[in-house]
Simulated assay, not measured.
Amino acid sequence: MNLSRPLLLASNSPRRKELLAGLGLEFKIRVKEVNEDFPEHLKRAEVAEYLASHKADAYQHDLQNEILLTADTIVCLGERILNKPANYEEAFEMLSALSGTSHEVITGVCVLIKEQKAVFHDITKVFFKKLTKTEIDYYIRNFQPFDKAGAYGIQEWIGMIGIERIEGSYFNVVGLPVQKLYTQLKALGLIS
């Protein structure tokens, strides 16, 4: 895969780095601290897109002949958005709430070039079995999921033992809807 210009990934996520590398794309990492607050009136998918777009705006004036990629993944239980847990207690509460039910993972993505900005999202429905307190405790203590929305990583132990099925893209839950990203890059004429 050849891109028509250099690709910058504005994320420190090891999972997003792996997924981009898996697409066969060369990229550099460029990260800035960006406030992740969002307007209260936004609906779930709008929040994910807003955050991805907002992150990209921080780079708008620095961009030369490059492609900037930003993303934000949120976990939604009904209308409640589960962010990254601050501590063990928050992680335990989130996983307990997700246990035995389904939720949606929404990743907003922004592809920014000097001439254009494309913002889109993908939604995956995830079904968790009923988790025991022992399973939740084991996962939090051994995997420290404090950098993950909803307090879990689908690719980790809890996903292996707890997720019964998903509807939609697995990679979206990992943190980047790579199929939609690839399609968008082609549509923008950035892949040759």
Rank of each mutant, 00 (worst) to 15 (best):
M1L: 13
N2Y: 10
N2V: 13
L3N: 09
S4K: 14
P6R: 09
L7S: 07
A10G: 14
N12H: 12
S13V: 06
E18P: 00
E18D: 14
E18A: 11
L19T: 01
L19R: 06
L20G: 01
A21F: 11
G24H: 01
K28Q: 13
K28S: 14
V31C: 04
V31K: 11
V31H: 01
V34I: 11
V34S: 09
V34T: 09
D37Q: 11
R44K: 14
A45P: 00
V47E: 04
E49P: 03
A52F: 06
S53V: 00
S53L: 12
S53G: 04
S53D: 14
H54Y: 13
K55H: 06
A56F: 00
A58P: 04
Q60M: 12
N65M: 07
E66S: 02
I67D: 08
T70H: 08
A71L: 03
A71K: 05
T73I: 12
I74D: 02
C76S: 13
C76Y: 04
G78V: 08
G78R: 12
I81W: 06
N83K: 15
N83Y: 06
Y88W: 14
E89W: 10
M94P: 07
L95Y: 01
L98Q: 03
S99G: 05
T101A: 11
T107I: 03
G108D: 03
V109A: 02
V111A: 01
L112H: 08
A118F: 08
H121E: 06
D122T: 08
D122Y: 03
T124M: 07
K125D: 06
F128E: 11
F128H: 12
F128L: 11
K129L: 01
K130T: 15
K130Y: 01
T132M: 04
E135T: 02
I136A: 10
D137Y: 00
Y138D: 12
Y139P: 08
N142Y: 05
N142G: 11
Q144C: 09
Q144H: 15
D147H: 00
G150N: 06
Y152L: 05
Y152T: 10
G153K: 06
I154C: 05
E156R: 07
E156D: 15
E156M: 02
I158C: 10
G159F: 03
M160P: 00
I163V: 15
I163N: 02
E164G: 14
S169Q: 05
S169D: 14
V173L: 04
V174M: 12
L176V: 01
L181K: 01
Y182K: 07
Y182S: 12
T183G: 00
Q184T: 15
L185M: 10
L188H: 02
L188F: 07
G189P: 02
G189D: 02
I191L: 15
